[in-house]
Amino acid sequence: MAKREVDIVVISDVHLGTYGCHAKELLQYLKSISPKAVVLNGDIIDIWQFSKRYWPATHMMVVKHLVGLIAKDVPVYYIPGNHDELLRRFKDFHLGSLKIANKLSLKIDGANVWIFHGDVFDVVMQHSKWLAKLGAIGYDTLILINRFVNFISLKMGRGKISLSKKVKNSVKGAVKFINKFESTVCEIAASNQYKYVICGHIHQPEINTVVTEKGSVIYMNSGDWIENLTALEYNENKWSIYRYSEDPVAQAIEIKNKKKNKGESPKELMASLLHELNVKNPEHGPVETD
């Protein structure tokens, strides 16, 4: 199958290691495209809730696919979020074509683009991290309840009910309103002469022009792979929102759910993947990091 070529893909809020993660669907998407560069914009692996008891084969297959892109010398930029903030201590780390940075500043077709996860503007994260972590656990529990409700609903011939999405949207919407998330981000972006600003964190896919006192800024959010199953793509001089639900080609890709070797923990599997990554450390792309 010929893969669809994409100049840049931005993915965020995958939350590998949690029950709500749609790793299979993400893997189908990744296998359907041939990206020239990949930006992982935070909360890819949910370190907050990581457990050896729950790490399905498809979750490791996503990691392995990304490692495969790095081995093929495709630039992959990892911007840690709040759920994988442990990786922020590895800022400016290089491994082959992989680079870890807290934020990215790119110049694409003459336009300045600013990319970061976005949790820095979340009041809950800044002042009550314990509450945010408690909310994450509660959300994951709600996902499990939601799956049970949908199982019963489908058996009764009714459609799916997204309890988790309704709760998530209402909570994140309140936080977004209080913090004036978009306007704050865009005001700072305009002050620094950025035409585009890309975030994740709030799980709301969006492309919107925001007018500030210092000029207009195009705000973009890549959404998530929990509820929306979305990403941002840059191709043919244009940004767009990718939606898995609207992609029959990706949905048709067969994923063989291979069982992991007995006795191997996720940590051991990860170590073997890194061992496979025996590539040089070239410089890639017009990217400046802070």
Score class of each variant (00 low, 15 high):
Ile253Asp: 08
Ile207Arg: 08
Tyr244Glu: 04
Thr230Lys: 07
Pro248Phe: 13
Ile207Met: 14
Trp239Asp: 06
Asn228Thr: 13
Ile253Val: 12
His203Arg: 04
Lys195Asp: 06
Pro266Ser: 10
Lys256Arg: 15
Ile253Met: 08
Ser216Gln: 14
Ser222Phe: 05
Lys238Phe: 08
Tyr194Thr: 02
Ile188Tyr: 13
Asn257His: 03
Leu229Ser: 13
Arg243Leu: 07
Val211Tyr: 07
Ser216Tyr: 07
Asn192Glu: 11
Asn208Gln: 12
Lys259Ile: 14
Leu269Pro: 00
Glu233Phe: 09
Lys258Glu: 12
Pro205Glu: 03
Val217Leu: 05
Ile202His: 05
Ser222Asn: 04
Pro248Gln: 15
Tyr242Glu: 08
Glu206Met: 12
Tyr194Pro: 02
Ile207Ala: 08
Asn261Ala: 12
Asn235Gln: 13
Leu269Asn: 13
Asn221Phe: 00
Tyr219Lys: 01
Lys262Ser: 13
Gly215Leu: 07
Lys260Glu: 15
Cys199Pro: 01
Ile255Val: 15
Lys258Phe: 11
Tyr234Asp: 05
Asn257Glu: 08
Ile226Val: 12
Gly215His: 05
Lys195Gly: 02
Cys199Met: 10
Met270Ser: 12
Gln204Pro: 00
Tyr244Cys: 02
Pro248Asp: 12
Ile241Lys: 04
Glu236Tyr: 13
Asn261Pro: 05
Tyr234Asn: 02
Val211Leu: 06
Ile198Pro: 01
Tyr234His: 06
Asn235Thr: 15
Lys259Val: 15
Gln251Trp: 07
Pro205Thr: 00
Pro266Val: 09
Ser216Gly: 05
Ala252Trp: 09
His201Asn: 15
Leu269Asp: 02
Val217Gly: 04
Glu206Phe: 00
Ser240Gly: 06
Trp225Phe: 01
Glu236Lys: 15
Gly223Tyr: 04
Ala250Phe: 04
Asp247Ser: 10
Glu246His: 10
Leu229His: 09
Lys238Asn: 14
Lys259Asn: 11
Asn235Tyr: 14
Met220Cys: 07
Tyr234Ser: 01
Lys195Leu: 00
Glu268Tyr: 05
Asp224His: 02
Ala252Val: 03
Tyr244Leu: 00
Lys258His: 13
Asn237Gly: 09
Gly200Cys: 03
Met270Ala: 15
Trp239Tyr: 11
Gln204Phe: 06
Ala189Gly: 03
Lys214His: 14
Val210Glu: 02
Lys262Asn: 08
Glu264Tyr: 10
Ser240Asn: 09
Glu254Leu: 13
Thr212Phe: 07
Asn235Ile: 12
Lys267His: 13
His203Ile: 10
Trp239Cys: 13
Thr209Cys: 14
Lys259Gln: 13
Glu213Ser: 12
Val217Ile: 11
Asp224Met: 00
Glu227Ile: 04
Cys199Tyr: 03
